[in-house]
């Protein structure tokens, strides 16, 4: 997987000159505007078919910087496209990442549909690091050793693109569809759980909509964090102690509707619940 990724990275560099800073800033503002106004937009690759993965991350960085300038704080990074099904669908070998901000954390028991465009929910395991992790070459075992706690979470993803339709660079530029997260109330040390066999059911209004085990996330949720550390290392970045990392959906993403009562049950980690208001 690695040699191919490096090869792809070389290709990004070739494309870099074709898109100047001004366009990247414009596209960043465009997506930020869509998010702030809860308005769906057509995907940016329609107008910029040449957009590369690296340029897409530049746009994402632009959005992240704007949010930080607004005074928002990063809770931690999140991984996307971590399931085989989604990677196959997008025809990629590596997952993607984005950032979750403090204003995305749902603290009550309900969300309002009007705060989103077309939100979907998926069940995940979040990792809280006790130590910094600096790639490259990080393994899942190293991640587990550096992890203080794992927490059950429901992530709300909300692509800013029409009908949730996008290509890989589109979704990366859109901060990996980040929009919300609800954490459970149970925390556990990682050695207390067999995380790849941790079973999860996701129900809406009492009916199971999807289910799976931790292995659905690139074989093991800790592997997802290791891949993230190694991806960030290519940019000279690291994972920091205290960050809460969303590792990727164990279940598929289920579209939310007004009146939905959402409940995810995690083996050994309790349940996470919320309702969807207007």
């Amino acid at each position: 997987m690695w040699p191919q990724s490096l090869q792809v990275q070389e290709e990004y560099k070739l494309g870099e000159d074709t898109m100047n800073k001004e366009i990247i800033e414009k596209l960043g503002r465009h997506l930020l505007d869509a998010q702030e106004n809860r308005r769906e937009v057509s995907k940016i690759t329609t107008e910029h078919p040449e957009l590369t993965v690296e340029q897409a991350y530049d746009i994402q960085e632009q959005i992240v910087r704007s949010k930080l300038e607004q005074g928002l704080r990063i809770i931690g990074p999140k991984m996307g496209l971590t399931s085989q099904a989604k990677m196959k669908q997008m025809n990629v070998d590596d997952p993607i990442y984005g950032y979750v901000f403090d204003n995305m954390v749902v603290t009550g028991q309900d969300i309002s549909l009007s705060d989103y465009i077309h939100p979907k929910v998926e069940a995940e395991i979040a990792f809280v690091l006790g130590q910094d992790i600096q790639g490259p070459g990080i393994t899942g075992a190293q991640v587990l050793a550096a992890t203080e706690y794992v927490i059950p979470a429901l992530e709300i993803i909300d692509s800013r693109y029409e009908n949730f339709q996008f290509t890989l660079p589109d979704v990366i530029a859109d901060n990996a569809s980040s929009s919300g997260v609800i954490f459970g109330n149970v925390i556990k040390r990682p050695e207390q759980l067999e995380l790849d066999l941790l079973g999860v059911t996701l129900s809406i209004n009492g009916k199971i909509k999807d289910l799976g085990a931790g292995a659905a996330v690139v074989g093991h949720p800790a592997h997802s964090v290791a891949m993230l550390a190694n991806m960030l290392a290519r940019k000279g970045l690291k994972l920091r102690a205290g960050e809460i990392i969303l590792t990727g959906g164990i279940t598929g993403a289920i579209l939310l509707s007004e009146g939905d009562s959402v409940s995810a049950r995690f083996d050994g980690l309790g349940s996470v619940d919320f309702t969807v208001g207007a």
């Binding site: 790849d196 066999l197 941790l198 079973g199 999860v200 289910l211 085990a213 659905a216 074989g219 164990i250």
Partner: peptide, 16 residues
Amino acid sequence: LAGMAFYKNGELMNTG
């Protein structure tokens, strides 16, 4: 809630 991972020739096929 017992999780299951199913592999064919070492490759994860599905979970449940």
